[in-house]
Design a protein around this nucleic acid. Structure first.
Lengths: 242, 242
DNA sequence: CGCGACTTTGAAGTAAATCAATGGGCGTGG
DNA sequence: CCACGCCCATTGATTTACTTCAAAGTCGCG
């Protein structure tokens, strides 16, 4: 994890274009940039580990960071994939607690680090910043809820169909495409499945004519069938209607 | 869900004593209380369902609310148990999104409802309130991460031991007591287990001398053994008699 | 005392993990 | 341009841990 010297105004520039802080005013941006630094991390490099103190907010300029919980048996539960313009590490930072998960780079990445005190002080002075952060945290909560929803059902076919349905652009019954944000191995880890099981489920859904799989591109052909798989108690067709 | 008329100052009083808003100044409290209302919900009554619009923040004065994701097969995933002085519904509220989960009363409860606009406006004016809300949301994120950690491991014995270890007061190896906040059925639903499996795991841990169970009181006798169960790839060879 | 809710116990079936090996895609280097 | 190695994905065979179904046992409370 190499520090990368950039002028404060350069950093302020980058920050301002990041969507995350899009609505912020110049003075606030400059304050945040004052002692911010940019770092580069290489693929597979650890940004922080579970239990590390949370001293700064991480904003992803480019690349991709994987947030995951380490588990026994070398398994891991993927919590989030963080990409361009998104941030991570805010909850632990705000409470002054150790990080609850690991963060490693899936590809070479550039990150901006904003110091804890700087952020908290500025949030106290700028309601707009506080609003940004609230919105970010709220999104995190909603994401985690969706995650729970897709990784807790008993059967794997439900987990997978739930996941695919969550990526539906609008509540409708048309078809749509999903480009997986990461490898199927990591998607499996997000759904609490093995890659083998995920593969088999994709296959099953393909055979049923619900989806088509081409590498990382999943084409949802018939979302109604997905709904059936999601709701039904799996195999017995029409077993328990109410 | 019956509305319960209380004067604004009464509500302000209650709010101020709630820990949640402990640090707030009087003027802020009064603003929030202005159009707040108190409602009573009876045991098993639904406060809101997944998909309902989020119009207000809920603060629990007394009683207990269960937040859970409905699943196929009548199963449910318990996300949180909310008790005295805690709040729920903030994430969806802040983003103007529908609630991601269901909320029902586990026992007769009194709730304070604060309107969305009131809360957001006041947060813009009072940095202290914004801080409170940030801290609350951060806690929610941390809780959800812990939840993930305890409900995702493959084996049920790991789920249970992880859960028990998370309630350890300090990082140490001494013994301690846990008073379950709700029924074992709901605890099982939180860990994504059936009540039967949870019961069997408690039994196993008791036989191993790691814990003692007396109703809702769990006495952790030897947390090191719990750690073993948590880390090991299930039963260490020979440690699990038939 | 007796009812209902919660919990425990038992027996059986199954879905998913595990282990193991093959196949495909892609970049590097010969 | 092909050959090689690496990583990711797929496929198959086996095992077992968990759910499910069913029933008995406990606890608390009117």
């Amino acid at each position: 994890m190499n520090a990368f010297p950039l002028s404060s105004t350069q950093i302020s520039d980058i920050l301002g274009r990041l969507g995350y802080f899009r609505d912020l005013q110049q003075p606030s941006l400059r304050k945040l940039s004052a002692d911010a630094r940019q770092v580069t991390v290489r693929r597979d490099e650890t940004v922080f580990a579970k239990g590390d103190p949370a001293n700064s907010l991480y904003v992803v300029v480019n690349g991709q960071i994987k947030i995951f919980l380490p588990q026994a048996n070398r398994a891991e539960k993927v919590v989030a994939m963080v990409g361009h313009g998104e941030s991570f590490g805010i909850a632990a930072l705000w409470l002054g607690l150790p990080h609850p998960a690991n963060a490693i780079a899936k590809s070479d990445s550039h990150l901006l680090l904003i110091e804890r005190d700087t952020l908290m002080n500025q949030a106290r002075h700028d309601p707009l910043l506080a609003e940004c952060l609230m919105a970010d945290l709220s999104h995190r909560v909603m994401d985690l809820m969706h995650d729970m929803e897709s990784c807790t059902p008993r059967s794997s076919i439900q987990r997978v169909s739930c996941f695919l349905l969550q990526h539906q652009p609008e509540a409708g019954i048309g078809g749509y495409d999903i480009l997986l944000s990461t490898s199927k191995r990591d998607i499996a880890a997000k759904l609490n499945l093995t890659q083998e099981t995920l593969s088999r489920m994709f296959q099953l859904l393909s055979k049923e004519g619900a989806i088509e799989v081409q590498g990382r591109l999943i084409r949802i052909v018939d979302s109604r069938k997905l709904l059936d798989f999601n709701q039904a108690n799996c195999p017995p067709p029409g077993a328990l209607p109410e």
